[in-house]
Design a protein around this nucleic acid. Structure first.
Lengths: 244, 244
DNA sequence: CGAGTATTTGATGCAGTTCAACGCTCGTGG
DNA sequence: CCACGAGCGTTGAACTGCATCAAATACTCG
């Protein structure tokens, strides 16, 4: 059992991706933090329709947010990266409206839902940050909806890969132009609203065009500018955001 | 120029759809409110990429949230109804990430962005409610993404109509089974990721199946249960939510 | 090595797009 | 008062991007 990381030594907080806050405020988050949890790849962390007693921030590892329709179809809503705050929905709306699953082993900072309100009330700057995080998530979902609604398969794939790689870069997860991508093609298919077969063929097309290739759990981007241009998106990576 | 509605007499606040708050808290919202604004149908209220000095709550009228891609494609992200809080994104993230347009004449309660922080800090219950609203919006976008990504044209249309009508009912906007729908077919097409032509044909199919018919700016739902079943969604209408 | 899971490839079919044309309504101006 | 045009809705016909079906090839782990 490894010792929990103290918040002031948090490796994420050092990154430019996250806005810095005064030491005293880091202490407040540290007090709010109840512990750490380690889960194996494949674990269901939160389930749609349940009311969970804890909220988490991802410290390490990657996962998936998804919703299911009764007949089994599944929509992957977002990819979960370090720094993501998960379980907020259940805190605000009574129950989770989507599920979260670990795609790799993950380490999660655990917060008790029962202490959420006093933390929120007593630390208005952090409350503001939590609202900010909700706005960031809303923004992402708007972009994803636009992709799935308006772009064709090749554009969608280029968009998704560019988004993922830019996020991973901002988190320092990439080595050279190699970016870890611990998902299955079915996951990407479910994220983009494509069939598995067509997802595979679309990936082959990106490879043929020398834009990006994916194998052995890692993406190699050969031409980020080309990807971004193909997807008709702006190049700039993720904007700084708060970390709880 | 009509007199602004005092918040304690707000017709929306009386509805079951909105959670009730103590009178003192209504006063706080009243103090935060800077005035009212009336806009004509067709007005651009907020523009993607801009930084606007005001935040609004919709008092009357309906509109559209949408994003555009450079080449002109447009994704309608949500329909704007009375009680919706708009402009929060620009407050949290510096600029709007989507545009908002009035589809009918609208009345908006105006709040000054410059006073947002002190309101948020001094009224933690309202701050919580604002986060809640962001979570509601996030939830909706997750559902919309699932629809566009996983459902076929007929299911999507059934889903959209059911969603809109259930919302309108909760707001007391419907008369019998008639529900006002002040949008163009192109708007619905852009919301569902369908072409205009196919949207029209899909509406015709719903009419043939005696589920719902749309003409003269109003929807008649003949079989809500059938719509809900076709869309594979749950019947329950919108859950209570806060009103700022 | 064998069973189960994931990726790849080819062939066929259809849901939805695109193109084209027509009708309806309403506002505008001669 | 009617002619005209613009905007929106409707419908038919042809085309295509993606889904579906089917099967072979890799990869993983007991």
């Amino acid at each position: 059992m490894p010792t929990p990381t103290p918040c002031h030594a948090c490796p994420l907080r050092r990154l430019d991706l996250f806005v810095t806050i005064p030491d005293g405020e880091v202490d407040a988050i540290q007090d709010f933090k109840a512990g750490e949890m380690h889960v194996e790849a494949g674990t269901q962390i939160l389930m749609e329709g349940t009311r969970n007693p804890q909220i988490y921030t991802v410290l390490r590892g990657m996962g998936l947010r998804y919703k299911t329709i009764e007949d089994g179809r599944r929509q992957v809503i977002n990819f979960v990266f370090p720094g993501d705050f998960i379980g907020l929905q259940s805190t605000m709306m009574g129950e989770m409206k989507h599920s979260i699953e670990a795609s790799t082993a993950m380490t999660l900072c655990v917060f008790e839902r029962g202490e959420f309100w006093s933390f929120f009330r007593d630390h208005p700057e952090r409350a503001f940050d939590i609202t900010w995080l909700a706005a960031v998530q809303e923004h992402f979902l708007g972009e994803a909806l636009t992709s799935v609604g308006q772009r064709n398969a090749l554009e969608r794939m280029a968009w998704a890969i560019a988004k993922i790689v830019l996020r991973a870069q901002a988190l320092g997860l990439t080595a050279g132009n190699r970016c870890p991508l611990p998902y299955k093609q079915q996951d990407i298919a479910d994220a983009l609203g494509l069939s598995l077969v067509h997802t595979n063929k679309t990936l082959a097309k990106l490879r043929d065009r020398q834009l990006a290739s994916w194998s052995n759990g890692a993406i190699q981007v050969h031409d980020m500018e080309g990807l971004v241009k193909l997807a008709k998106m702006d190049l700039h990576g993720p904007e700084p955001r708060p970390l709880i």
